[in-house]
Amino acid sequence: MAKTAIITGSGSGVGRAVALRMAAEGWTVALVGRTAKGLEETRQLAGTNASNLHVFSCDIADPVAAEKTVAAAVNKLGGVTALVNCAGTNIPRRSLEVLNAGDYQSVIAANLNGTVYFVLGVLPAMRKAGSGTIVNIVSDAGMFANAKAGAAYVASKFGVSGLTQSINAEERQHGIRACAIYPGDIATPLLDKRPVPPPMEARAKMIQPEDMADCVMLCVNLPDRAVVEQMLVRPR
């Protein structure tokens, strides 16, 4: 049976690492992200497996664009075995003291709304197939609020956590399972949006994107009878 996946945020970081791992393991993958350049770089990094990766540039925060992209990706893949939501953003001015409505809305739109749009987009195909795995890369800030992440990011990630639980509550009857992965600090470009970006020596001690790819593959490769509903992963 063909293994097919849609991965958001696959132009860099965790999304790229997951896409490359899946391609190496024989999956056919739809790469989704804001910029075609980053997605194409991911595809080229797959080397001999590049033909298994297909580029779909999309602003996932745009509901119309998201709906069209999911439909096109499912059609290209001939169905969807897994959706991995890796896309996410944050803002430098993130404390409640300086947070404004526009920045708050931009974080919610990308982190929560975009995830919802892609979940809604794949559910019909998964229901028809009678199976499917949805993996949401959340954050430990979606389990325990912290000032470092900022209120908008925390709110968005708590929302994704609740969404994941709702998928399991409502869709298990259709053979669909969902996993929320709660990582601590990951060495990705998102760190550059912190008010004070951490130095390279600190990033080397953080979780690496390839570590997250290991976690995702555990979730999607488990037999259908099992589901990892929550996974908390932190730097040692």
Rank of each mutant, 00 (worst) to 15 (best):
A71H: 10
R94I: 04
A2I: 15
P209R: 02
E171I: 09
T42E: 02
R127N: 07
R203K: 13
I91N: 06
P124E: 05
R93C: 06
S166W: 09
A155E: 01
V228M: 12
S51G: 08
I181C: 02
I167P: 02
R93Q: 15
A226I: 13
G130W: 11
N113C: 04
G132D: 03
G184H: 04
G79D: 14
V14Q: 13
I60E: 00
T81M: 06
I134F: 03
Q173L: 04
E40M: 08
V98R: 11
F144S: 15
G130P: 12
G79F: 05
I91S: 13
K68D: 08
P195C: 06
M206L: 13
D211Y: 11
V64F: 09
G26Q: 11
G102M: 06
V160E: 04
G13Y: 14
C86N: 12
V74P: 03
N85Q: 12
P195H: 08
A2S: 14
K76R: 15
A202L: 15
L190Y: 01
A147Y: 01
P223G: 10
E171H: 14
I167K: 08
S161V: 11
H54W: 05
C179F: 08
A50Y: 14
V29H: 03
I60F: 01
A50S: 15
E97W: 14
K205I: 10
L222S: 12
L120E: 14
R172D: 10
W27S: 03
G130I: 04
A46S: 03
G121W: 01
V216F: 05
R225D: 06
N85V: 12
A155L: 01
A109H: 03
R34L: 09
T28N: 14
L123A: 02
A141M: 11
L31C: 10
G15V: 09
R194A: 06
T4P: 05
A155M: 03
F118I: 02
I60A: 01
A71L: 08
Q230Y: 12
A141T: 12
T42W: 03
Q44D: 09
Q105I: 00
T81L: 08
A82F: 14
L83P: 06
R194N: 11
A152Y: 02
L218T: 13
I108W: 08
V74Q: 09
M206E: 04
N85K: 11
R21N: 14
A180E: 07
C58Y: 00
A82D: 14
P63M: 00
T35R: 15
V32L: 13
S161P: 00
V18F: 13
A180D: 10
E97A: 15
E170T: 09
M200P: 08
L163I: 08
L39F: 11
E97V: 13
N52Y: 06
N111S: 07
E170H: 12
E210I: 13
S57L: 03
A50I: 04
P223I: 10
L120M: 14
D192I: 02
A73I: 09
Q173Y: 01
Q165S: 01
K157N: 02
C219N: 12
T48S: 15
G26A: 13
T115M: 02
A169P: 02
G9I: 09
Y182H: 09
A149M: 01
R94Y: 07
T69I: 00
G33K: 04
L222I: 10
G9A: 03
M22Q: 13
T35E: 11
V227M: 05
